[in-house]
Design a protein around this nucleic acid. Structure first.
Length: 420
RNA sequence: GCGACCAUAGUUUAGUGGUAAAACUUCGGUUUGUGGUACCGACAUCGAGAGUUCGAUUCUCUCUGGCCGCCCCA
């Protein structure tokens, strides 16, 4: 019985093509983030389990983490998300580095779940956070960054909508309603699922929690309660400001809740407008209390994250996946094995000039080598044998067009650049 | 964690209670410095284990994996 070549359940192998695509995707993202002055940080995927125990959602911690005990009896968790790590790192250096921080991180996250469409046990995620700035401009900026990331891929405003809500508003509405304090969390969970169920089913379940009294959504609509009114107006102003600044595809969504317990203010999701991929692409919000887990200093923060799987699903749905070509510029074919050292030396000269060169090491027939170049998507071939080693001239063959061009060795760079 | 469906070469699929076909891919070849076509050849203990049977890839069960829905979420 041979070993299985499949990767572990719910995780992926990244073959060169896949890896190149992922890298290309993130390069586009990083480019946008750099323009906003965000710098990259990273950390180990291993964290103390306690980091997640108080503030992440209960279900994620209890049922969806990879948690184990190490040889020193420490409880260890493979990070299911990055925000607690970011909070830990930011809190640790709060007296050393200038705030606010504009930080991002790209890395893998682990969740022990049943894999299915757009959901795996290991996925890559970009986390973008602005730490140390109060609500207002920071929140506006972060949403704009998200919008610009999608724009950088060529996604128009019609391909996604930005759903916005406020945890403060939800909390105020829950308090103003007939809801009991201990039922706030269950109500929010119900609200989160509202769009997935029939209106009648929602009414029924809402009634179970609220009874005949006023429900939170009605409180928001009526806005008679002063704190509901205040939060509602703040949210309306926030949305209006986004629109004034050119972000038009924003919509208030009273049922948006978000799963993580640590959110305290504005929450948002970038949602694919295509019905075939109806899901959240980016999700985030303000979490002003998370850093106080680590210190007495209050450090407000806002941020969002998105996964590689959902991003690729989105780009595919809208036909926006960038073309990736990572093949070499030039293929050096060698008529016999004796020519290989000379070909390598010539390849090195070309590499010095910045070209990427593939040298054939097989010593097979030239015809086979050209076939090989074709399979590898390398369009330019130079047969490099004794004659070429002696001469200052070389023949550059374009295997797409079949054209051959005899040229001086030092002119190759220019010729390649022209054809690209 | 719950439920549905699926599981034959690297891939996509045929097929049968008596040990399996095809296309494409990959690799090798069609005699030695120039390819894309054509031709020949190689590559499957039919996901794993158990049961029924004279005999199972084909039927049953269990497991594993995939895929999808729920839950949750990116």
């Amino acid at each position: 019985m041979k070993l299985d070549t499949d990767p572990y359940k719910g995780v992926r192998d990244f073959y060169p093509d896949d890896k190149a695509r992922l890298t290309a995707l993130f390069a586009i993202v990083q480019d946008v983030l750099a323009k906003y002055g965000y710098s990259e940080y990273d950390a180990s995927p291993l964290e103390r389990a306690e980091l997640y125990e108080s503030k992440t959602s209960e279900e994620i911690v209890n049922e969806q983490t990879y948690t184990f005990t190490d040889r020193g009896d420490r409880k260890v968790t493979l990070r299911p998300e990055m925000t607690p790590t970011l909070a830990r790192m930011a809190a640790a250096k709060r007296r050393e580095i200038p705030f606010p921080l504009r930080w991002y991180s790209i890395g893998n996250r682990f969740r022990y779940e049943r894999p299915q469409k757009g959901r795996l046990r290991e996925f890559y995620q970009v986390d973008v956070d602005l730490v140390g700035a109060p609500e207002g401009e920071a929140d506006l900026e972060v949403i704009r960054v998200g919008r610009d990331v999608l724009r950088a891929f060529g996604a128009g405003d019609e391909t996604f909508s930005i759903r916005i809500n406020s945890r403060k508003l939800l909390t105020a509405a829950c308090k103003a309603s007939a809801l009991k304090d201990e039922d706030h969390a269950s109500y929010m969970r119900l609200l989160d699922r509202k769009n997935k169920m029939e209106a009648s089913e929602f009414e029924e379940k809402q009634k179970e929690l609220v009874g005949d009294g006023k429900d939170p959504l009605a409180c928001i609509d009526g806005a008679d309660d002063p704190s509901v009114k205040e939060e509602k107006e703040k949210l309306e102003t926030f949305i209006a400001t986004l629109k004034e600044r050119g972000i038009e595809n924003v919509v208030y969504d009273p049922t948006l809740v978000r799963g993580f317990d640590y959110y305290t203010g504005v929450i948002f999701e970038f949602f694919d407008t295509d019905p075939s991929n109806a899901r959240a692409l980016f999700g985030g919000g303000r979490y002003d209390n998370l850093l106080s887990l680590f210190s007495n200093d209050e450090i407000p923060a806002v941020g969002f994250a998105f996964g590689d799987v959902t991003l690729q699903d989105f780009l595919e749905t809208h036909d926006l996946l960038p073309e990736v070509d990572f093949s070499s510029h030039i293929y050096l074919a060698t008529p016999s094995e004796e020519n290989i050292p000379a070909a390598q030396a010539f390849a090195n000269e070309l590499r010095e000039q910045g070209l990427s060169v593939f040298v054939n090491l097989s010593g097979k027939k030239i015809g086979d080598q050209i076939k090989d170049a074709e399979k590898r998507n390398i369009t330019h071939v130079i047969v490099y044998g004794e004659d070429e080693a002696k001469s200052s001239m070389v023949t550059l063959k374009n295997i797409e067009t079949g054209d051959e061009l005899e040229t001086k060795k030092e002119n190759i760079l220019d010729l390649i650049n022209e054809s690209l």
